[in-house]
């Protein structure tokens, strides 16, 4: 038993708040308004820094430097964003966005493809060392990227993949989590389905593409969202292996924009870049919201 379990076991059960009421959905009148008020205040609290960043990206450098900072957008929107996208500070932001997009998509698709295939192998084939391989994959869950970053760098440098998309993508592509997730999902697929496909004449890969893959689509969508954001937010790895500014990704690029020594920070451009960096993940999450939530909540029968 871990310490946390022991603690949980000793804590007396706490009555769920609102247990005496008819439940949250049924609540009417003042309670409803209070709930909404609480949520709105919370939302404003969270949203405020983002709003400030947006405001800062639409005004000029002197306006930012001279307190108090305005709370309403200024008139420099187009200029600041054009400057950020086309020239940036070290590299044009448009280029960095493109790099990030390639890396995030590469990692998301690569991870999904590899983990689908390895989960397929582990669940549907009996080969010597099957369990061993599964536990080896599982073991990598316990090693964070930072632990193996030096040897990985060595390998990538040895292959001459520094400052390249393959160097950005391949080392991050293996995923124990996704393999594990697909393994669990495949194990819930009835054996009879695989047998029916066998009787129908489907070879293993045909079964994989025609039946297993379409059945996993909600899981794949959910995973895609998570992995895209994971790839998009990579910081340490791109920082290590991209020395050429034209290969910088956006998340590390923002940090690179910060002035060193006595340089003056171009805050409007940095803020515009930050806002731009948020847009693709937001699009992915909002665009795939329905599939994403379905993938997390329900398992298709």
């Amino acid at each position: 038993m871990t310490g946390r379990d022991a603690l949980a076991a000793e804590t007396p059960p706490v009555k769920a708040p609102g247990a005496d009421h008819d439940g949250m959905v049924e609540r009417r009148g003042a309670g409803l308004w209070l709930t909404h008020l609480g949520l709105i205040v919370g939302l404003l609290f969270i949203f405020f820094p983002i709003w400030l960043a947006f405001v800062a990206s639409t005004i000029s450098q002197p306006e930012i430097a001279r307190p108090p900072m305005p709370l309403l957008p200024g008139d420099q929107f187009i200029e600041n964003y054009t400057r950020a996208l086309t020239s940036g500070i070290n590299a044009p932001v448009a280029l960095m966005l493109g790099n990030s997009l390639v890396m995030a998509l590469g990692i998301a698709f690569g991870k999904i493809a590899i983990s689908l295939l390895s989960a397929f192998a582990i669940v549907y084939f009996r080969f010597p060392g099957r369990q061993l391989f599964f536990w080896l994959i599982f073991l990598t869950l316990m090693l964070p990227v930072e632990v193996r970053i030096v040897p990985t760098y060595e390998v990538v440098a040895g292959f001459g993949m520094l400052n390249s998309y393959s160097g950005l993508i391949f080392p991050l592509i293996a995923s124990a989590t996704a393999t594990f997730l697909f393994r669990q999902f495949f194990m819930t697929v009835p054996d009879e389905l695989a047998e029916a496909a066998r009787v129908d004449g489907a070879r293993p890969m045909r079964f994989f593409f025609d039946i297993l893959l379409p059945m996993s689509r909600t899981n794949i969508a959910a995973l895609f969202v998570i992995l895209f954001i994971y790839g998009w937010n990579q910081y340490l790895w791109p920082l290590l292996i991209t020395t050429d500014p034209s290969m910088n990704t956006i998340v590390m690029g923002i940090k690179q924009m910060f002035p060193s020594g006595d340089d003056i920070a171009d805050w409007p451009v940095i803020m515009a870049t930050s806002i731009l960096a948020m847009i693709p993940p937001v699009i992915v999450v909002v665009g795939m919201q329905r599939l994403f939530i379905r993938g997390l909540v329900e398992s298709e029968k």
Partner: peptide, 11 residues
């Protein structure tokens, strides 16, 4: 073969 749980492809 006809299976006990029908084993129809759900999608």
């Amino acid at each position: 073969m006809v299976f006990q749980n029908y084993a129809l492809y759900p999608h």
